[in-house]
């Protein structure tokens, strides 16, 4: 009978239970706080970018009345470039300004006289040999290059070492590197008044409570950054890189006719983005970009070929997929290769 009384007592006190809805919100808020704490300022992912470098001149092209913009960014009378261009776009996150690593490595190839930019992502965990320094993940290369004991990180050096490593890994000569920080990505998106991005599958943010449905949507800088940072996706960073390429396509589709807004975008780009070229100047690069009217992604790395060495996991490229693409770029025959392999491109 004591058992019965116990059951009754428990049942009677059920109404003590607080309502769950406010608690649910409190939990979510606490999770966000703790995650933020956990990851600190190490924003995963993203800065994908290409961004401005491609989009801004792209927008310029359609503008009859050109706004006043900073001299160095004006393609103006830069000498024409009559050779193919390969540019590495490095999306870097900053760890509270103390260190940088490249989370996104995107090769942008523009065939000679072409109007299409081809985008190839390299996985950030790609196993690479840094010339003269040994084994690393591709994304870390930037860190090794930029880190200066007791001094501010040197981004130009990080970009240089990463470019050298990409060349050693893929055999591709790079004409320029474009380093995009988070701030650049976000500022450009906001300056453009938001960018429309079309994604293949729904993404649920682990950093905010937002859900980004599959399909097209217009996002502001904050939302875009949040979406592009997500890498807990079915195919992890591959899906994130795919979202990054979708963002670039969205940027290229941005219709910017408002000169004020455009000027803002240009300035935003100039702030968060560094360009370093070998034998090519920023205005020249922009001039090439100005001629681009489409961007297509080439998929070379959606198969998982992980390898663990000394308890560190690395990704490897599938040479049957990547080598033909690299070779075609080297021989300036990518346009032909794409025509022959339409399934590899989107």
């Amino acid at each position: 009978m004591i058992e019965e009384q116990l059951r009754d007592a428990f049942e009677r006190h059920e109404k003590l239970a607080p309502p769950s809805a406010p608690l649910r919100e409190a939990i979510d808020r606490a999770v966000v706080r703790r995650r933020r704490h956990r990851f600190g300022r190490r924003l995963a992912g993203a800065a994908l970018a290409v961004v401005a470098v491609l989009s801004v001149p792209f927008a310029l092209r359609d503008t009859i009345e050109r706004p006043l913009i900073g001299e160095p960014l004006l393609p103006g009378s830069a000498p024409a470039v009559d050779r193919p261009l390969t540019v590495a776009v490095l999306g870097v996150d900053d760890d509270g300004g103390r260190s940088y690593r490249a989370d996104t490595v995107l090769l942008v190839h523009v065939p000679a006289g072409g109007h299409t930019a081809y985008l190839v992502s390299l996985p950030r965990d790609l196993l690479v040999e840094i010339p003269g320094q040994g084994r690393a993940r591709l994304g870390e290369t930037f860190y090794f290059g930029s880190q200066r004991r007791g001094q501010e990180p040197d981004l130009a050096e990080g970009a240089r070492l990463t470019a050298g490593t990409i060349t050693a890994t893929t055999g591709l000569q790079l004409d320029a590197t474009v380093t995009v920080r988070y701030s650049g990505l976000r500022a450009v998106t906001d300056a453009l008044g938001g960018v429309e991005i079309c994604i293949d599958r729904m993404v649920t943010s682990r950093h905010s409570d937002r859900v980004y449905p599959a399909g097209c949507q217009r996002l502001d800088g904050r939302g875009m950054l949040d979406l592009l940072r997500q890498r807990k996706l079915p195919h992890g960073v591959y899906d994130r890189d795919a979202n990054g390429r979708a963002f670039v396509r969205g940027l290229l589709g941005s219709d910017v006719r408002d000169p004020v807004r455009l000027a803002r975008a240009v300035h935003a780009a100039a702030d968060g983005i560094d360009v370093a070229g070998t034998g090519i100047t920023t205005p020249q690069l922009l001039r090439v970009a100005t001629g681009i009217d489409a961007a297509r992604s080439i998929d070379i790395g959606s198969t998982f070929r992980g390898v663990t060495i000394d308890r560190v996991e690395y990704e490897r490229l599938d040479p049957t997929l990547s080598t033909p693409v690299f070779d075609a770029i080297k021989q300036n025959q990518l346009t032909g290769w794409v025509a022959a392999n339409p399934h590899a491109v989107r």
Binding site: F10, H13, E14, L16, A17, P18, S20, L23, R24
Partner: peptide, 19 residues
Amino acid sequence: LGAMLRYAVMLCGDPHLAQ
């Protein structure tokens, strides 16, 4: 969540602690 809250109330005997 509701069931967890009720369970916690039975354990703690107090709604604040349960929450």
